[in-house]
Design a protein around this nucleic acid. Structure first.
Length: 274
DNA sequence: CCGTCCTCCTGGCCGC
DNA sequence: TGCGGCCAGGAGGACG
C-alpha cells in the first residue's frame, strides 16, 4: 500500500522519465478512475501538455502541466505508475496510458482499481476534498511536536485512528502507523487525549523516524508496491510489527498480537506497548 | 464528536 | 486439484 515513503519513491523514480516531456496521447481504459472533470475534458486538458514537474503532498502525486493545471493522482491500495517503452508489452492491470514524446509510456496500473486521477488547477475551482484538507506531513516544518500535542489533546479517539487521519497528519497509512506506535511503545487503542507529554514526545520522534527510515529504504513492498521502474522497496526487512503477527517482538521476544482498530488490522507488542 | 460498519475491488491464501 | 470464503485496507459515507 503506497504511503508517504512509497509515493515519494514513485515521484523520484518518475521524474527523470517524464520531466519536460510532452503528453502526446492519453488512453483511458477504466473511465471511473477519472473523478474530475469528465473523461473527454480530462483527455482534452492533458493532451499536448508538457509535464513541468512532479510533486507529492501526503499520499497524493501532482504532475504539473505547463498550462498551470496539474494531474492529481492517488494510488490508494494497489495503484502504480509505471514507465514502459512505447513499443513494448503493456503492464498487467493497465488502466490509464500516457504516451510521451520521448518514446516512453507512463501507465497508471491498478489491481483493485481504487486509485483515482483528476485534472485540477488553472481556472478550474474544483478541489479534491481530501487533498484540500491535508494536515502537515512528517519531517516537514509544519509538523511540530507542539502542534501534535495540541491536536492529540483535543481529540478523544484512539491514537491509531488519529495517526491514520490525513487531516491531522498527511501520509501515514496502516504500515507506518503501526510501526510508529511500536517504536513509541504506545498501544494503538490508547486514547489521544490520554497520552502524557513524554509519550507525545516519543510518538512525535517515532513518526518522523519511521517515515525517514521508509524513505531511506525506498519504501515498503509487502504485496504490490513498486516504483516507476518496477523496483521494490527494502523497508519490509526493517519492520518491527507490521505483518509479523504471532512472531516474537524484536525487543522482548513476546509474541506480537493482532487486533482490529477502526476496521484496520493492528499489530502490536503486548509487553512493550503500553 | 466518535466508533463501527459498509462500499468500492481483485489477487492470494487457507481450509475443507 | 478445486472451490468457497476470507483477508488485505485508503477514504468517504451512513448510522447509532
Amino acid at each position: 500500500m503506497p504511503e508517504l515513503p512509497e509515493v515519494e519513491q514513485v515521484r523520484c523514480s518518475l521524474l527523470p522519465h517524464i520531466k519536460n516531456e510532452k503528453i502526446c496521447n492519453v488512453e483511458i481504459r477504466l473511465p471511473r478512475m477519472v473523478v474530475h472533470p469528465t473523461v473527454p475534458e480530462f483527455i482534452a486538458g492533458v493532451e499536448g501538455q508538457v509535464i513541468t514537474d512532479v510533486r507529492r503532498k501526503g499520499k497524493y502525486l501532482m504532475l504539473l502541466l505547463n498550462n498551470g493545471q496539474y494531474i492529481l493522482a492517488h494510488l490508494r491500495m494497489t495503484g502504480a505508475m509505471l514507465i514502459c517503452p512505447h513499443d513494448g508489452k503493456e503492464p498487467p492491470f493497465a488502466k490509464i496510458r500516457f504516451v510521451l514524446a520521448n518514446g516512453k509510456d507512463m501507465w497508471f496500473t491498478d489491481i483493485r482499481t481504487f486509485g483515482t486521477m483528476s485534472l485540477c488547477g488553472g481556472n478550474d475551482v474544483w478541489q479534491d476534498k481530501g487533498f484540500a484538507a491535508l494536515g502537515p506531513e512528517p519531517l516537514s516544518p509544519g509538523f511540530t511536536e507542539a502542534n501534535l500535542r495540541e491536536k492529540l489533546k483535543k481529540s478523544h479517539q484512539m491514537v491509531k485512528c488519529f495517526i491514520l487521519d490525513q487531516h491531522k497528519i498527511a501520509g501515514m497509512g496502516n504500515i507506518y502507523a503501526d510501526e510508529a506506535l511500536a517504536a513509541a511503545g504506545i498501544r494503538p487503542t490508547r486514547y489521544s487525549d490520554a497520552l502524557t507529554k513524554k509519550q507525545v514526545h516519543v510518538l512525535y520522534e517515532a513518526i518522523n523516524q519511521v517515515i525517514a527510515q521508509g524513505l531511506r529504504n525506498h519504501g515498503t513492498t509487502f504485496r504490490n508496491y513498486q516504483d516507476a521502474d518496477g523496483l521494490m522497496g527494502n523497508n519490509k526487512d526493517y519492520l518491527l510489527v507490521y505483518g509479523r503477527k504471532g512472531q516474537p517482538c524484536t525487543k522482548c521476544g513476546t509474541l506480537l498480537r493482532k487486533i482490529k482498530v477502526a476496521g484496520r488490522g493492528s499489530v502490536y507488542c503486548p509487553h512493550c506497548q503500553k
